[in-house]
Design a protein around this nucleic acid. Structure first.
Length: 585
RNA sequence: GGUGGCGUAGUUCAGUUGGUUAGAAUAUCGGCCUGUCACGCCGAGGGUCGCGAGUUCGAGUCUCGUCGUCACCGCCA
């Protein structure tokens, strides 16, 4: 037995007990005739003391100790002379009678403290040291708690947790696949799943009725703070349900998690059509923690001789409360901000609403006070407000205004981390036009069913067809999405046709699913949540790296184990692979 | 694929207009210290200024390239 207690549990009641602790040396404070050692483990920190009564052999042994040594300490719990109210074990200490080094440590490259001196790069390289820090471990404990609450809730609703294969088949739709060569099947490859999509549908056909899985998914696309090449989904599917049933179930799950994990009661989730999200927020994942909605002011802004607006397809505005005090410098900075290539706007027009009801704008030359008053009415601006106007191609301007809205929300501190505003965005378009390959792509995936009333549009105006698809959005983050599925092989065949598949290609790629539909397929629908994003949202973090034990960097590398890496010629040969690198490293 | 930021002591950073021997904090090591808990005080060691070219009498500083890293755009059904 290495220990009788953990470093977080001894209290004043334990005084006089002879105990054994094991853990890491956090810090040694050598006061000369006496020394204090902070011993740390997952559960806390306990102070060990060496003083004039301590055996000489122990005193000399302290010289060998350094930060992050793993030691076993034996001693008697005693009350401290000077107590530390800031720590749970702060009323007691251990009078050392024996100390043994279990694992010596080199000097760690950064300090293992809450406010570490280590940068991200170093922390990732020595992730096993970083994980010793409270803040990082607490994120992973939160993750474990959340996963537990998912299982508790879904199990209670009769969902069957089912594993699906990781070595599957590459398909042309969607993201780029990660691919695995097969040794036994020369020249052939598995693909890693982008999601267990088809398997969960097959489970519905199998009559499982309700399936879930907390499962790794893989997408070989460029990364972001909230995107890793491998990530975790809460993946679900239900039979004999409509959209409403799925949303109710998973709204229930989300509320349950907020309550169990954060002890927060969230209100019922509003439903917002995709078209409304785009018009009012300039985004399909609106941050509804604050208003500042987008307004179409084309009617009142056009036809007054200002060429930029007159030529524009759309003129839109947002109203920032109490911002008429913005200085010329601040407005110039905002203009530069929207002109950055990432936003790509041509410019920004402002109107300051003065206290006396007059207006001061950057386009006073073209617009009278009366004109500007109409703008103010259109956006609901009051005195002291600031109206920001952009124009151009409608779609681009909406999304640029949406970005500007978020930026203003940041500047005005309206995006509070401890406020949670979930909503369902519904009625997504079924298809979106892809300029690159000159064909329609499925916006969600090719198994999503069109709204029945829109099916006729498939022939006449496919871009207008709405899908029975939905996203859960919280605070401007897309947490998850799903759809009611097609469960009829003819409609599925028609979808593949619209997506530009020949019947032969569709059969080769998805024949197994379309055949399965012919053996009694129930109506079904499903959803998947990005578990990493949900955890980071709960943790109040921007990046999902901090809630993953061993994440990859921006370039998809694990800098700790240094992967990906070369493989040996023997391995290549066994797989019948030859490299043909376009550029030498 | 693109845009931008960063790269200087173990670590986090400063380094002015291109100009003497590149600094601070912290960590480490040594000394002193009986109630510390971010202990304190005194002292010491520690630098391929990412790498490579170029401009210059002279480059941490300017230019180009390259590598690494971060954020974003494209991409991510």
């Amino acid at each position: 037995m290495y220990r009788t207690h953990t470093c977080g549990e001894l209290r004043i009641e334990n005084i006089g007990h002879e105990i054994i602790l094991a853990g890491w040396v956090q810090r040694i404070r050598d006061l000369g005739a006496m020394s204090f050692i902070d011993l740390r483990d997952r559960y806390g920190i306990t102070q060990l003391v060496v003083d004039e009564n301590t055996d000489e052999s122990i005193v000399s042994k302290l010289k060998e100790l350094g930060r992050e040594f793993v030691v076993q300490a034996k001693g008697v719990v005693r009350e401290r002379l000077s107590k530390n109210k800031n720590m749970p074990t702060g009323e007691i200490e251990i009078a050392l009678s024996e100390i043994k080094i279990l694992g010596p440590s080199k000097l760690p490259p950064f300090t293992i403290q809450d406010d570490t001196d280590g940068g991200d790069e170093l922390r990732m390289k020595y992730r096993y040291l970083d994980l010793r820090r409270n803040v990082v471990r607490e994120n992973l404990v939160l993750r474990a708690k959340m996963a537990h609450s998912v299982r508790t809730y879904l199990n209670s609703k009769d969902f069957i947790e089912t594993e699906t294969p990781v070595l599957i088949k590459s398909t042309p739709e969607g993201a780029r696949d990660f691919v695995v060569p097969s040794r036994m099947n020369t020249g052939e490859f598995y693909a890693l799943p982008q999601s267990p999509q088809v398997f969960k549908q097959l489970l519905m056909i199998a009559g499982f009725d309700r399936y879930y899985q907390i499962v790794k998914c893989f997408r070989d696309e460029d990364l972001r703070a909230d995107r890793q090449p491998e990530f975790t989904q809460i993946d679900c599917e239900m039979s004999f349900v409509e959209q409403k049933d799925v949303l109710e179930t998973f709204e229930g799950l989300t509320k349950y998690m907020f309550k169990k994990v954060l002890n927060i009661e969230v209100e019922d989730f509003p439903w917002m059509p995709y078209s409304e999200a785009m018009e009012k927020y300039g985004s399909d994942k609106p941050d509804t923690r604050f208003e500042m909605l987008l307004n179409d002011i084309s009617e009142v802004a056009k036809g007054k001789g200002f060429g930029v607006f007159d030529k524009a397809e759309y003129v839109g505005a947002i109203c920032a409360d109490e911002c008429s005090c913005y200085t010329r410098k601040q407005l110039d900075q905002l203009t530069d901000w929207v002109k950055r290539p990432q936003i790509g706007a041509k410019g920004l027009v402002y109107v300051k609403c003065n206290e006396d009801g007059s207006f001061k704008s950057s386009v006073d030359k073209f617009y009278s006070q009366e004109d500007l008053k109409q703008w103010a009415e259109a956006v609901g601006a009051k005195p002291h407000d600031l109206i920001l106007v952009m124009s151009g191609d409608k779609e681009k301007t909406l999304s640029a205004l949406g970005e500007l809205r978020l930026e203003m929300g940041n500047q005005l501190k309206l995006r509070k981390k401890n406020v949670f505003k979930p909503l369902w965005v519904v009625d997504f378009p079924l298809l979106e036009w892809n300029e690159e390959n000159n064909r329609f792509h499925a916006m969600h995936h090719p198994f999503t069913s069109p709204k029945p009333e829109d099916i006729a549009l498939l022939e006449t105006d496919p871009g207008k067809v709405r899908a029975n698809a939905y996203d859960l959005v919280i605070n401007g983050v897309e947490i998850g999405g799903g759809s009611v599925r097609i469960f009829n092989s003819e409609l599925q065949a028609k979808m593949f046709d619209k997506l530009g598949f020949t019947p032969e290609q569709a059969q080769a790629q998805f024949g197994f699913l379309m055949n399965a539909f012919k053996y009694g397929a129930p109506p079904h629908a499903g959803i998947a949540f990005g578990f990493d994003r949900l955890v980071s949202l709960f943790a109040g973090l921007e990046t999902i790296r901090d809630i993953i034990a061993f994440p990859k960097n921006n370039s998809g590398r694990d800098v700790m184990i240094d992967s990906p890496s070369d493989i040996s010629n023997e391995q290549l040969e066994e797989l019948n692979l030859k490299l043909d690198l376009k550029e030498n490293k």
